[in-house]
């Protein structure tokens, strides 16, 4: 039957249980890496903001909030649990708008939970948003094909977004200090279970959205807004 432990497991948005995998803490990276992260994130955000007119602003803000909340969900994977990142889905839903949406979600995360902060904001935005945009570009059109192709594409979209993010963390560490090689390898390896879970969740979630609200997905017949 339902035990207290199950209840706790299900309602774990509590800060103590937060172990955000996909980000780099403050104080690790070198100046040049921080600076290039910031420049690239600013460029991506500028493109994203240009594509978001004021009519789509409410939608982007709301999806950003949903992304923030959904990323608090812990999904069990034996023997531990991972928490969802969902940058693949955010990429699908917002395209380049993923940059400002993720930037804003990270600012909220910094203020609420103190994950990351001012100096790593650029790098961390880039780590999540660039893979989102890339997987949107690669798989955005495939998800309306036959169900087998569509679900494979959605799986690939979700797991590639995580893989690319993990590789970018690894690269950022390596550019900072060549001796970070082992740490980078551990970080990338730690993301493999996350990749699988994200792929499955993304595939099912995209199938769900296709049934329930197909206009939310890119390349659908009707325009996405209003």
């Amino acid at each position: 039957m339902w035990s207290r432990r199950d209840h706790r497991r299900l309602t774990k948005t509590d800060i103590r249980r937060q172990t955000n995998v996909m980000h780099i803490s403050e104080g690790i990276l070198s100046g040049p890496v921080l600076a290039s992260g910031m420049v690239l994130a600013a460029a991506g955000t500028a493109i994203g903001l240009k594509k978001l007119d004021y009519d789509r602003m409410a939608r982007a803000g709301m999806l950003s909030a949903a992304f923030f909340v959904a990323s608090l969900i812990h999904v069990p994977i034996f023997p531990s649990n991972v928490h969802l990142i969902l940058n693949g889905i955010v990429g699908l839903l917002l395209g380049w708008g993923a940059f400002p949406a993720i930037l804003v979600a990270l600012i909220l995360q910094a203020v609420f939970f103190q994950y990351g902060g001012i100096t790593t904001l650029g790098v961390n935005t880039l780590i999540m948003a660039l893979p989102a945009v890339i997987s949107y570009g690669l798989f955005g059109r495939l998800i309306h094909k036959r169900p087998t192709i569509a679900s494979t594409a959605a799986f690939a979209c979700g797991s590639l977004a995580v893989l690319l993010g993990a590789l970018m963390i690894g690269l950022a560490l390596m550019f900072t200090e060549e001796n970070f090689w082992h740490v980078s390898a551990i970080v990338v390896a730690a993301h493999i279970p996350v990749m699988i879970v994200e792929g499955i969740v993304t595939a099912i979630c995209v199938a769900f959205l296709k049934k329930v609200q197909p206009t939310m997905l890119p390349g659908s017949a009707r325009p996405q807004t209003l």
């Binding site: 034996f78 099912i204 959205l209």
Partner: peptide, 29 residues
Amino acid sequence: FRPGTNLHTYKTYAYVVGMLFVRAAARAE
């Protein structure tokens, strides 16, 4: 519903996430 390492759990969470996005988009409109 009890979470565990199985497809049913992932399906449930995926539907929860999907529903969050759907409701967020409707509310945004």
